[in-house]
Design a protein around this nucleic acid. Structure first.
Lengths: 335, 335
DNA sequence: TTGTATGCGTTATCAC
DNA sequence: GTGATAACGCATACAA
């Protein structure tokens, strides 16, 4: 099996203490012994045992990331950002698919506790009380990504959902649209649901357009089907709309597909704006205009914050990341 | 900080040996002491230290997965399958983005060695010799997913690329197409490139259609842009084609978008078939007909194989997973 | 500059 | 049934 520091010591004719010292480059040894040790290490192909190390210095150089669904473009983008800085730090990241399932999440949290990971990035979901308790008892930092919590003082990094939605809708208004429908994700979702609806309403109000509740149809989720199935419902309730704000890119693409089925031309008959800026949007026909969340940067920022929290032991300020309109071809100018 | 087995022992008025015994449910203690220990554990919120455990029994219950690009739907799907069985096993998975970069990969491999992970799943890439050497020296099992290697005896799980491509093209032929173009990924790619081209050719030959090299255009990769930018090139070289086989779904969607720009109607003027069966395909306009790789199952199978290899110490047989045609709306029947 | 010895939190092998 | 105690592989305080 793998060699130990002892084997190296023997081969180099020194004590294990000396080997340990050169391994950690602390000095306190002659250049000659250093070379002896180093060559012994090379000869044996020795690799230090991170378990033994971690046991002593209480550092595992491992963090975890939890999301409700690993296999979505959304999660994948954030993961990429996280993985980037994790690798930079010489650390590693354990991924956990919670499936939005309480017991599965709790089971993971326990496993992570046992493995003595040093920090957690919690993505997209609402942080339940039991999660919070569990993490608290682990005494390690956590940062929320693309979500936030009002009940606890926890750092998060996300865009301002309300404002981003506002921006999207105002963009539509600036393009001359007045009758604007919205297909929202679950309206009870305190992060990606309600705030975006509020942003929509506020944009209308500030531009002296009356808010009509019938113009808002609530999907149950944020997927393609949610958009696809709800465009007809929206059109029935509000046949005169000239534009739709969909609460996610997947929904927006669903809307576009539904429109295609119905013989409604995008953007000529109906304009569509999405939310997220997933790669999907560029691939759509027509290419989707959307309000972008910088997902990869959110992941990077979250990871960076987590690592400095691990290092310093102090908490950090939350970050609101900038959103911006990505103009493509799904919105028509109306004048 | 976290409590140790010692604290539990003290609180329960027993020795650490006894605590360890009930912790591992080995028997050899009265039901009464068991309860004493258990309640002490609960009171203290004790969590065993996996590092110390791993140090002794040489098991970390951790595996790693490496892919060239985490933030693709392709990787995400496989990851999901892997994560599924990993969680079932009470283990955890470290994700590594190699970025198809040799030194990055080697750095990761070393880190993983130090962490004493128990196995590796290697996805999509060509296994270089130095990778093989590194993994060999770790003395842990590896299984390849969606890739394979000819130089070494390593278990893999993937579809038969050549056959899957054959199936896709024959489907086109059965629909009455004779002039069929192909946009291949990198033709030097020994896994996803060359074999698919061979499958394409074979399908033509077996159906007595002359292979014309001009009908094959080689993109440099498998992305949207590769499809988008190469349809015009293909059309120039082979203006009379009635159908295109794209070597990936992303490319196929790129082809559809390019066709749209060119005023070519899909499938009326041109049929398109893809490869992979990503969620993307359902969202396309028109929905994409494609040959499916069961990505999630590939991930699950790879993980299952890896775990039994870890358990038994023996190697396993490779698995060819079934592919199948997913009929949607991008192919027209020609008679 | 170098070596010895102790401890990190477990499990396992002995005794009792 | 239960309790000391020796590993596991390493870092470090203390001697030398």
């Amino acid at each position: 099996m793998s060699h130990t520091i002892k084997d190296v010591a023997k081969k180099a004719n020194v004590s294990i203490a000396t080997v340990s010292r050169v391994l950690n480059g602390q000095g306190g040894y002659s250049i000659k012994t250093k070379e002896k040790v180093l060559s012994a290490i090379k000869e044996l192909g020795y690799q230090p045992n991170a378990l033994a190390r971690g046991l002593i210095n209480k550092r595992t150089k491992t963090i975890a990331i939890l999301f409700p669904e690993v296999s979505s473009m959304f999660s994948a983008k954030i993961l990429r950002g996280v993985e980037n800085v994790v690798h930079e730090q010489g650390a590693s990241v354990i991924v956990c698919n919670t499936a939005s399932n309480g017991i599965r999440t709790m089971k993971y949290l326990q496993l992570l506790h046992e493995k003595r990971i040093e920090g957690i990035i919690f993505v997209s979901e609402v942080l339940k009380e039991e999660y919070y308790e569990a993490v608290s008892s682990m005494n390690i930092p956590i940062v929320l990504a693309a979500t936030e919590t009002y009940r606890y003082q926890l750092p998060y990094v996300k865009v301002n959902d309300r404002h981003a939605a506002y921006t999207a809708v105002e963009y539509l208004i600036n393009k001359g649209h007045q009758k604007i429908g919205m297909i929202s994700g679950n309206k009870y979702d305190p992060i990606a649901g309600h705030p975006r609806i509020e942003g929509y309403k506020e944009a209308l109000r500030r531009n002296y357009i009356t808010v009509n509740e019938k113009y808002i149809v609530d999907a149950k989720g944020f997927g393609f089907k949610d958009g696809f199935e709800n465009l007809p419902r929206l059109l029935e309730a509000a046949p005169d709309i000239t534009a739709v704000f969909a609460a996610s890119d997947e929904m927006a693409v669903g809307v576009i597909s539904a429109a295609y089925r119905l013989g409604i031309r995008i953007p000529d008959d109906l304009s569509v704006i999405g939310y997220d800026n997933l790669p999907l949007g560029e691939m759509s026909i027509p290419p989707l205009t959307t309000v972008a969340q910088p997902l990869e940067e959110i992941g990077e920022m979250a990871a960076n914050m987590l690592f400095t929290m691990i290092e310093t032991g102090e908490t950090m300020e939350s970050r609101i990341m900038p959103h911006k309109i990505i103009e493509r071809a799904s919105v028509k100018t109306l004048y």
